[in-house]
Amino acid sequence: MTRKSIFPFLAFLVVVGFLAVGLQRDPSLVPSPFIGKPAPAFSLPDLLDNSRTVRNGDFRGEVWIFNVWASWCAACRDEHPLFHQLAALNLVPIVGLNYKDKAADARAWLDALGNPYTVVVTDESGDTGVDYGVYGVPETFVVDREGIVRLKHIGPLNAHSMQSEIIPLVKSLLL
């Protein structure tokens, strides 16, 4: 190889390097600024008992899972059986955030598909969703005993992410 022809080749390698990294990333996954930070505060009515107010502070000292869902969200239906499985393990409280939904629709949805949640809070305005940076329902957060967000999963969980991400993390936080 002559000296002159090495420069286009080097430039080519640089481009290949950038593409090799860049093309394997999913641009729809926005890095979450919440990991390692305290879970944003909320104080919302219980979906099944409107007279009761639930706060994030109620779970202080516990590891808990926060799942954002809505009856209008098709992917929430897909991941719903996984929450039944998780609830059956009886590891941690599963808190549902019913996001921008009508209470009657949400209750009907739970009646039809079963209710794996320890408690479901309603966020009709979507303000709590905004505080949690929600942009792609369903989303799932894992919060530790100190109230720090340890994981944010955007989009529906599948059997693999439940078994390899959520459950091992929850178990390690419980130790």
Binding site: P27, G126, G136
Partner: peptide, 22 residues
């Protein structure tokens, strides 16, 4: 965040409406 190549002014997504309101 929903329609990532639009700004809040151009987007009709529910989230964009909420963020405009905010």
């Amino acid at each position: 965040l929903v329609c990532q190549n639009q700004n809040l002014a151009d987007s009709n997504a529910d989230l964009a409406q909420d963020l405009r309101r905010k």
